[in-house]
Nucleic acid binder design. Structure first.
Lengths: 224, 224
DNA sequence: CGTCATTTTGAGGTATTTCAACGAAGGTGG
DNA sequence: CCACCTTCGTTGAAATACCTCAAAATGACG
């Protein structure tokens, strides 16, 4: 998740150009249209993927019929790593997306060869683990408004949001957001309206947000 | 030193004897009495730790005054890895505990040297990430009973529980459990009583549990 | 065996979920 | 270009389950 990047050392997580070239040599390019599924949960894990452009969601369908979105992936994100033998999540594009596919066998061989590349991956996964913990706190909150505020803040830092400060792009559906935040669709809907009514943000269509009152948004987001 | 052994999980980390010796050579032993703090959040991260015996909790105090327990660590667990520059959690022993301290600089040097060791760590963190996701689902549940049932199931597999099937040892306090499950102390207390009243488990003192109706416990735990 | 900390229990408050129905948006085909 | 259909989002009212506050009971430990 490149959004959620710890505001400090994203560079440590990224790969060098040389490493990128190395990886590219064993990679095949995938062009994904919206709703296209990269892999399904339970499938045997045969590759790791890097998102080069666009956005995807990683989710899991629970026995009780609910769906849990575990992560959104954007440019430069590596996914499929956290699996072992079998994928535990399903990954699906939510807009036109370009990914690179790294066969697991080649990748493992490369990692066992190149300690530095390996270390980069270690940092990457470590970083993801921190984010996962961060999100655990996010989801643990009681207030729907607070969760949504945090989510918007996170999305503002995503590669897909325009460079204009205060403008946030949300490529995913409300349902996806609900499944990500551990809320019902209705609660997300109500929370967005409340944030709107309170003059904290302004929704320009379903996928674009403008921050009106930064101060209160931050306070809501931070008030864990 | 027996840390980093395969513990049944296919994803568990497996180190060679040579790697084990290498790590031992840079480690110093720590003997911790209960409540002893290993490191505090915000402190600069200078070492990674391996628990060799006992149990610890990793927690974070939130601005709103609540405490969130992020993890419990037992024998063979590595902690302090998920930090970067500064620790984000506080780690504290919850019973007499033995840990080994690996200075970050030495460890990093070693990892950059030894791709195989590095890969083992990558698998370890990857495994932890999966567990974290699993727990995200756990915490996302609505029912306190269900969360507690899952927790008991998890704890039954911990190294501290007796080998006798159906007997679970809980070294931590109810408050710790509550902070781990994202519930109030009272809710945990009530949930334990309900599980007791329903004849699903039997509490023998605050720290020992016996499974009475395995079938229903599993069903509760799995009914996500 | 007394003191302090932890846990249990009770009653009421509150936020989200659920259920149900309506409204909006986007794509397709005639 | 419009009708139709499917998906997605909004809104309202009632139910559910946890949280909070307060006080009693139990357990831990010197």
């Amino acid at each position: 998740m490149s959004f959620l990047k710890t505001e400090g050392q994203p560079s440590a997580v990224l790969l060098t150009d040389r490493q990128r070239r190395e990886l590219t040599s064993i990679a095949t390019r995938l062009d994904l249209s919206p709703r296209r599924i990269v892999y399904r949960e339970q499938a045997t894990a045969e590759a790791v993927f890097i998102c080069a452009e666009g956005a995807l969601k990683s989710y899991r369908d629970l026995p009780n019929g609910k769906r849990r979105v575990m992560a959104f992936w954007f440019r430069d994100d590596i996914y499929g790593l956290a699996e072992n033998g079998r994928y535990v999540n399903t990954v699906q594009a939510i807009m036109p997306t370009v990914c690179y596919r790294l066969p697991l066998s080649s990748l493992v061989a490369m990692l066992l060869q190149d300690a530095h590349l390996n270390f980069s991956f270690l940092l990457k996964v470590t970083h993801e683990l921190r984010e996962s913990q961060q999100r655990m706190i996010l989801v643990g909150r009681r207030s729907a408004r607070g969760r949504l505020a945090t989510f918007l803040t996170l999305m503002e830092a995503s590669p897909l949001s325009p460079r204009i400060p205060g403008t946030i792009h949300l490529p995913m559906s409300r349902t996806d957001i609900a499944n990500y935040l551990g809320l019902s669709l209705e609660s997300v809907s109500r929370a967005t309206r409340e944030l709107s009514d309170d003059g904290i943000v302004k929704f320009v269509g379903p996928h674009s947000v403008r921050v009106i009152d930064r101060r209160r948004l931050s306070r809501l987001a931070a008030d864990v």
